[in-house]
Amino acid sequence: MTGPVGDLFREYHGSLVRMLTRRTGDADRAEEIAQEVFARAVAAPPRNPRPWLFAVALNLVREEGRREVRQHRRLVLYRAEQPVAFESPDDEMDRNDRQAAVRAALATLSERDRDALLLKAEGFSYDDIAATLGLARGAVGTTLSRARAKLIDAYRAVEGSHDIAS
């Protein structure tokens, strides 16, 4: 069993953590959730691993999202998580502003739309997105179309409000 689990880890861990980091805004938490997901995969190896791993991960994120205390902690961690990087303060501020705006825009989407977008960004096929999110395969295109449009609109709205405020 170790071999397959090792293969799963090699193949999907990076992608899973990245998706979770994008989803939660907390790299540390993303690592923890990914660890939990793989621990469960070790205990019960999935037949269709990719959708399974991501679906379990997204379920854990949703569960966590329901807990107010954890949400608060996550926000605190997110503030502390601002990356250590050698870049100019202006560049860093710009990047953080953009990240915050994108995150705010993403938060306006429904969970399904948001998850579909994040999975697509990880290279999921429509079949895998359908399997992961429990959608009909034919609904994936419509979901992504709506999600992309909403994300862009919301982002522009957030950016517009910042421009007005400044």
Partner: peptide, 21 residues
Amino acid sequence: HVAEADELIEALDALDAPAPP
């Protein structure tokens, strides 16, 4: 739209985010 949405998603990545798969 597809290109812009992809770009926005990628903007979420911190500098120390995991490398692409």
